[in-house]
């Protein structure tokens, strides 16, 4: 017996749009992305969506499903209440290109301003020496698949449109991976405080809640960065010790 599910999918562009209703046959283990593909193939080939691996490894198919930011390839239809239509719309934080596709280029633009890894022994070709416990923290951050769901859910970017004061959780994770790299020789704290704007974050943890890679963005990246910034800017005792040492 085949069952059907009703979807309300946003159709439109930056000028506005509307939700259109589609009915799709369900199969065991079906995910929202399967339903979107079925609509493309059988009902409307112009429905735009972004996807790649369909295995939650590339982070392309970010959308908002029933108001929840998530990957379409990882959201099972069975897990959603199907007595009501499933509402699928593009991520809110970024400008809509068409239907479910948004313009996420801002993320790539600000990424350019983050200084790359700077090794203490630059120019050498010797194998690096690092222990597993040294790299565990960094490896967690490097699991990031750049789905930008954290950027989407971050209220500073999403509702307050303050891309000018905060780089967003994704870039905090990236900076944390560099700042906590066991062999990084850069002083990144002024950048983290001023350009990247870590103090703008009020650690309400929505980024952690939506991360499909289960990176503890707030506890392991943002808060430790705030503490490192505090060492330099909000700790007169340490400042005194630094002065004395010098």
């Amino acid at each position: 017996m085949t069952q059907t599910v009703t979807l309300h999918v946003f159709r439109g562009d930056s000028n506005g749009g509307e939700f259109r209703e589609y009915k799709v046959k369900t199969a065991p283990g079906m995910v929202v992305l399967d339903a979107i593909h079925q609509i493309q193939k059988e009902q409307d080939g112009t429905l735009a969506c972004r996807w790649n691996c369909k295995a939650a490894k590339c982070g392309s198919c970010s959308a908002e499903i029933n108001g929840h930011p998530g990957l379409m390839c990882k959201t099972r239809i069975e897990a959603l209440p199907t007595e009501k239509p499933v509402v699928v719309q593009p991520v809110k934080t970024f400008p809509i290109i068409k239907d479910l596709v948004t313009d996420v280029s801002w993320n790539y633009e600000i990424a350019k301003t983050i200084a790359p890894l700077k090794l203490k022994d630059e120019g050498s070709t010797e194998p690096l020496r690092m222990q597993q416990e040294d790299v565990d923290r960094v490896q967690e951050f490097r699991k990031c698949i750049e789905c930008f769901l954290c950027q989407d859910v971050c209220h500073i970017l999403r509702d307050r449109h303050r891309k000018d004061i905060f780089y967003g959780p994704r870039q905090m994770v990236r900076i944390a991976a560099l700042a906590m790299h066991p062999l990084d020789a850069s002083e990144r704290r002024p950048f983290i405080k001023d350009q990247a704007g870590v103090l703008a974050c009020n650690i309400t943890k929505c980024c952690t809640e939506v991360c499909p890679e289960h990176i503890k963005i707030t506890d392991n990246a943002i808060i430790p960065l705030k503490e490192r910034v505090a060492d330099l800017y909000f700790d007169p005792i340490r400042a005194l010790i630094r002065k004395v040492k010098r």
Partner: peptide
């Protein structure tokens, strides 16, 4: 064809 960093290498 895709965004940067999404190519099949990630698989």
């Amino acid at each position: 064809k895709s965004l940067l960093g999404k190519a099949h290498t990630v698989m």
